[in-house]
């Protein structure tokens, strides 16, 4: 597949790799974004990202940002700079990046799964949810026009093990934030300090419409867990999601509401899909005029 022509997909920021994986010693780093091959080259204090084909790199260097444990770039001209995440400036926090995991699904499906609390008891049983307490309590959801983001606030959920170092269950407060169509974050009550919020982000590099690289990053107040323990907790959670995601059909995200009678849990999905529709985003979106095949 060739580079997309979808302006809404092109004119925004994406992770293209992790600094640990893009080193002079490791050689030329090749990756793919929105159907376009890229070459990432480490240089003094930064990176040069260029489009590439079989003959090597071509064209001008693309914009680059180094932020939140990852290297970012864009194939277009974003209207805004990379979205801020204030917690990364707080020095007592621990940051762990979990590496790139491949998923055969639209990145938009990954975002929607990330927003969905209803699956906690069944997919992350006895960790992020308990089968005896499947209720998704009422929450608020809005498209914030000033920042052009989708937010779900005042979310709560009963969690047997909310984080790597959690001892026993807690009622966890959640805030969800879709910063761009392929980058999503959540803020949740920190088990060791109820006054602060842990941040978990899922940055998605859409390789093709139906193939994604998912980079999870954890930014937590956790004086106890080892770095490895924090990574493994998050990897375990994401690998549980990955099976569900790979088996969803269609692999692309339909923009029509997923249920005829939406439940409370669907509110954030409805807002997310409406926001995508308003943007005119087509990349990773299931064409509405095609019949939807039944689940595989």
């Amino acid at each position: 597949m060739a580079k997309t022509t979808d302006r809404a997909a092109l004119d925004t920021w994406y992770v293209v790799g992790r600094p640990e994986d893009i080193t002079a010693a490791a050689g030329t780093y090749r990756t793919r974004l929105l159907g376009q091959d890229l070459e990432v080259r480490p240089v003094d204090g930064g990176y040069i990202v260029r489009e590439a084909d079989a003959g090597g790199p071509s064209g001008d260097p693309l914009p680059v940002r180094i932020a939140y444990g990852h290297v970012w770039s864009t194939l277009g001209t974003p209207a805004r700079d990379l979205f801020p995440i204030d917690e990364f400036a707080e020095t007592d926090r621990r940051v762990a990046t979990c590496g790139a995991v491949r998923v055969r699904a639209s990145g938009l499906r990954l975002v929607e799964n990330f927003l969905d609390m209803a699956h906690f008891p069944f997919v992350h049983t006895d960790i992020l949810g308990a089968e005896e307490q499947p209720e998704v309590p009422k929450y608020d959801c809005e498209i914030r026009r000033d920042v052009d983001e989708v937010w779900a606030t005042n979310c709560t959920f009963w969690q047997p093990q909310a984080a790597a170092h959690a001892e026993g269950g807690q009622m966890t407060d959640y805030t969800y934030r879709v910063a761009t169509p392929f980058n999503v974050l959540l803020y949740k009550t920190c088990p060791s300090d109820q006054a602060r919020m842990d941040v978990i982000a899922l940055f998605i590099q859409p390789v093709e419409e139906d193939l994604s690289l998912a980079y999870a990053v954890v930014n937590v107040v956790d004086p106890v867990s080892t770095h490895t323990g924090i990574i493994h907790f998050q990897q375990m959670i994401f690998l549980q999601d990955r099976i569900i995601l790979e088996n969803q059909r269609p692999r692309l995200l339909p923009l029509s509401p997923r249920a005829e009678t939406p439940t409370r849990a669907d509110m954030s999905s409805i807002a997310f899909r409406r926001w995508l529709k308003e943007k005119g985003l087509r990349y990773g979106v299931f064409e509405k005029n095609e019949p939807i095949p039944s689940a595989a």
Binding site: R18, E20, G99, A100, T226, T228, I231, H232
Partner: peptide, 10 residues
């Protein structure tokens, strides 16, 4: 003893 195999290459 958890080992950071991926992505840390421990």
């Amino acid at each position: 003893v958890p080992v950071d195999v991926f992505p840390g290459r421990e």
